Amino acid sequence: MRARAGRRYRAGLRTRPRRPCVPAAPVKAVDTVGAGDTLVGALVTALAEGQSIDAALSFAQAAAALAVC
């Protein structure tokens, strides 16, 4: 999994045959501590529930966005 910070936020997984990438919603971050842990935990939870990779990434991005506000 790759998470990229900077001007453009996104998360992606290296899978075959394609590499899904989901852009994050812009938020005004107050505290970024735990954002990565939140993203990974939400991603693993969504995948364990049987969600598709795209849906799991979207869920994880939303959770991480909420964690930093």
Rank of each mutant, 00 (worst) to 15 (best):
M1D: 03
A3D: 00
A3E: 01
A3T: 02
R4H: 06
R4C: 00
A5Y: 07
A5H: 04
A5W: 08
G6E: 10
R7F: 07
R8W: 06
Y9G: 04
R10D: 02
A11Y: 07
L13E: 03
R14H: 12
T15M: 12
T15V: 15
R16L: 05
P17L: 03
P17E: 01
R19W: 04
P23H: 11
P23Q: 06
P23T: 11
A24F: 07
P26L: 06
P26K: 15
P26D: 15
V27A: 05
A29E: 03
V30E: 11
V30A: 11
V30N: 10
D31P: 06
V33F: 09
A35E: 01
G36E: 00
G36M: 08
G36F: 03
G36S: 05
G36R: 13
G36C: 01
D37Y: 09
D37M: 13
T38Y: 10
T38M: 13
L39R: 06
L39I: 04
L39Y: 12
V40Y: 15
G41D: 03
G41Y: 12
A42G: 08
L43M: 05
L43I: 02
V44D: 12
V44G: 04
V44F: 14
T45W: 15
A46Y: 15
A46M: 06
A46N: 09
L47D: 07
L47P: 12
A48T: 02
E49Y: 13
E49D: 12
E49L: 06
G50E: 13
Q51L: 10
Q51C: 09
S52T: 15
D54I: 08
A55W: 14
L57E: 03
L57P: 07
S58V: 09
S58P: 03
S58F: 10
F59V: 08
A60M: 14
Q61R: 04
A62N: 09
A62G: 07
A62D: 12
A63T: 02
A63F: 00
A64N: 11
A64W: 13
A65S: 15
A65W: 09
A65R: 15
L66V: 02
A67M: 13
A67N: 13
V68H: 11
C69V: 14
